Computed example of a mutant assay.
Amino acid sequence: MLINADFSRRADLVPEHYRWMASPQCGVERVMLDRVGAEIARATSIVRYAPDSWFPRHCHPGGEEILVLSGTFSEGGAHYPAGWYMRNPPGSSHQPSSKEGAVLFVKLRQMAQREEHRVRIDTRDPNAWKRDGGREFCPLFANDVEHVCLRRLSPGEPLFGESVEGAELLVLTGEIISGDQSFGPGGWIRLPEGTYPEDIAGNSGASVYLKTGRQIGAMEEA
């Protein structure tokens, strides 16, 4: 299965165009944002757990990245409400579930095999946020090929101050204006290498999940 599989081209989606598809596990649905492969795939998805839904314990050979968008997501006896960010490195395993239901942003098989450490960050914690040159951000992960953070933007603030090797963003609050398109909460954009001065926060500002770096289109080589 190939969905937005050409990483040399822009891809985007707004929530009004979400197409929810059943997963192999009852009560768990997903919106496929990009995908290279069948059920075992390099994939980026919005995943929705119904209340009392779960997956049996399974392994992630290529790693898994999760941002909890709403509800509470659980791994065994650990519970992560909205705002938690997680990275489960290649070779890790877990048994995910949700008692109350949850919506997640999930990226599968997009990590370098050399990653070894679990990451757990509560982005609601004020101490997790930093300022640099007037920009407010919450660092989530960085290595020599990718940088992941949450960003808060003031009204009209540009998303990028310089060219990028590649970028992917999910709008969490507010609005991002990209050219002649508007993306509210749940809007997803993936950009190839280039400059994007037209990408700015809307009149109410915005907060976004933002990943930049060459891994956006070259995960297999990491």
Rank of each mutant, 00 (worst) to 15 (best):
M1R: 11
M1L: 09
M1W: 03
I3A: 09
A5K: 01
D6R: 05
S8M: 01
R9I: 06
R9P: 04
D12Q: 10
V14Q: 09
V14E: 06
P15M: 11
E16N: 14
Y18A: 01
R19G: 05
S23L: 11
S23I: 05
P24H: 11
V31N: 07
M32T: 11
D34P: 07
E39C: 06
A41L: 08
A43W: 05
A43L: 14
R48M: 05
R48K: 15
D52N: 14
S53H: 10
S53L: 04
F55V: 02
F55R: 01
P56Q: 07
C59T: 15
C59R: 15
P61N: 03
P61E: 00
G62R: 10
G62A: 10
E65A: 12
L69C: 10
S70V: 06
G71K: 01
G71V: 05
T72M: 10
F73K: 03
S74G: 14
S74I: 04
S74C: 15
G76P: 12
G77E: 13
A78L: 14
H79T: 10
H79P: 01
A82T: 05
W84L: 08
Y85M: 03
M86N: 05
N88S: 14
P89G: 01
P90N: 06
S92L: 07
S93N: 07
Q95N: 09
K99H: 12
G101I: 03
A102N: 03
A102T: 02
L104Y: 01
L104G: 08
F105S: 00
L108G: 02
R109Q: 10
Q110Y: 02
Q110D: 09
A112I: 04
Q113I: 08
R114C: 09
R114S: 14
E116R: 15
H117P: 00
H117T: 09
R118F: 14
I121R: 08
T123A: 10
D125C: 14
N127W: 06
N127I: 06
N127M: 12
A128P: 00
K130V: 08
R135T: 06
F137M: 13
C138P: 04
C138A: 03
L140F: 11
L140Q: 06
L140W: 11
L140E: 10
A142E: 15
V145S: 09
V145H: 13
V148F: 11
V148R: 13
R152H: 12
S154Y: 07
P155I: 08
P155N: 04
G156R: 12
L159W: 03
L159M: 01
F160H: 09
F160N: 09
G161N: 13
E168C: 00
L170D: 01
V171F: 10
L172H: 04
G174Q: 07
E175L: 08
S178Q: 02
G179N: 08
S182P: 04
G184H: 05
W188H: 07
I189S: 02
R190K: 07
R190T: 07
R190S: 09
R190H: 05
L191F: 04
Y196F: 15
Y196T: 00
Y196L: 00
Y196D: 00
P197Q: 06
P197S: 04
E198R: 12
D199C: 12
D199R: 11
I200E: 00
A201R: 13
Y209W: 15
Y209H: 04
L210D: 00
K211L: 12
T212R: 13
G213W: 07
R214T: 14
Q215S: 13
Q215H: 11
G217K: 03
M219Q: 11
E220W: 05
E220H: 10
